[in-house]
Computed example of a mutant assay.
Amino acid sequence: MNSLLNAISQMRLPTDAQRVFHGRGGLYPGCEHWTLDAFPPVFVLTSFLPATDDELATLGAALAQRWQVLAPDQPLNWVFQCRAQGHVETRLMAGSEPEPHSVTEDGARFRVQLLKGQNHGLFLDMAEGRRWVRTHVAAGVAAGGPSFRVLNLFAYTCAFSVVALQAGAKLVVNVDMSHGAITVGQQNHQLNGITTGASFLAHDIFSTWGKINRSGPYDLVIVDPPSYQKGSFVATKDYARLMRRLPDLLMPGAHALLCLNAPELGMAFLQDQMQELAPNLRFVERVANPAVFADVSPDRSLKVLVYQAPD
């Protein structure tokens, strides 16, 4: 636990939402089950193994000591989440969570909820993916594409849509089968003063191709599915169904952003299937993950791959 304690003792006052410590990357022996995130003004400490009361007391004291240095006039707010197999719990350990609670990232605001469920509303490891979208859309619009159109599949709470519209996209079609996630996505647009340009389809993607096709073709297609969600999407069998459709969804010269967060599936899983199922699309680059998410094996970490359709 020393590496986590050391990270706490050296952390700076967080302003944007961000990961503070990433034991899951395997770079800190003995801390592989710990992560610490900042969703200002709340910290979330997560353990993927059962944690003892003594461990939580030690970590809580370390947070309190560092917080006294960083913000002595503000209360410490922190949440503990256990995600051990067979033992899942979320507990408010000190302070409170704002209601409603919104956080910032690169000037954009997003709703989060830390005390219900395992997903908080914003995936911090995708921060560089969102920056890539912002930069890419802005460059496309500046190059003479004022009608820039984006398809956001598995949109979740629509963070990609927010940054694309802020960057100048004319239209973003957001598709996700979760009505609750889409509702939060609509709130995220309102939080950022975005009143036009976004459409929201709370449908199963695989039964909504008619509506998706009517708004296309697109200048950018974002595919960010769960790696495994029973009854919805299983990467090993369902990703291929998406890849086959990509060429028809893309404008000439357009791009696709393919995302996969499954430690057991490496880059070759995506690249080999793309070569077989959409060979005309050219691999451009892998978007780097935030530095704090460094992993002993890049193949285990989040994969965000960029492909381009032929001109």
Score class of each variant (00 low, 15 high):
residue 67 W to D: 03
residue 67 W to E: 04
residue 68 Q to R: 15
residue 69 V to E: 14
residue 70 L to W: 13
residue 70 L to Y: 12
residue 73 D to M: 08
residue 73 D to G: 02
residue 74 Q to C: 08
residue 75 P to W: 13
residue 78 W to F: 13
residue 78 W to I: 00
residue 79 V to D: 00
residue 80 F to L: 05
residue 80 F to C: 00
residue 81 Q to P: 00
residue 82 C to I: 02
residue 82 C to D: 09
residue 84 A to Y: 07
residue 87 H to Q: 15
residue 89 E to V: 12
residue 92 L to D: 00
residue 93 M to V: 11
residue 94 A to E: 14
residue 94 A to G: 01
residue 94 A to T: 08
residue 96 S to Q: 14
residue 97 E to G: 01
residue 97 E to I: 12
residue 99 E to L: 11
residue 100 P to H: 12
residue 102 S to V: 11
residue 103 V to K: 00
residue 103 V to H: 00
residue 108 A to L: 10
residue 108 A to F: 04
residue 109 R to E: 11
residue 109 R to D: 01
residue 110 F to K: 12
residue 110 F to G: 09
residue 110 F to H: 12
residue 113 Q to E: 15
residue 114 L to V: 09
residue 114 L to H: 02
residue 114 L to D: 00
residue 114 L to F: 07
residue 114 L to M: 11
residue 116 K to T: 14
residue 116 K to L: 12
residue 119 N to R: 14
residue 121 G to F: 07
residue 127 A to V: 09
residue 130 R to I: 06
residue 133 V to Q: 03
residue 136 H to D: 07
residue 140 G to F: 11
residue 141 V to K: 09
residue 141 V to Y: 08
residue 143 A to N: 14
residue 144 G to F: 03
residue 145 G to M: 07
residue 145 G to W: 03
residue 149 R to G: 11
residue 149 R to H: 05
residue 152 N to E: 08
residue 153 L to F: 06
residue 153 L to W: 06
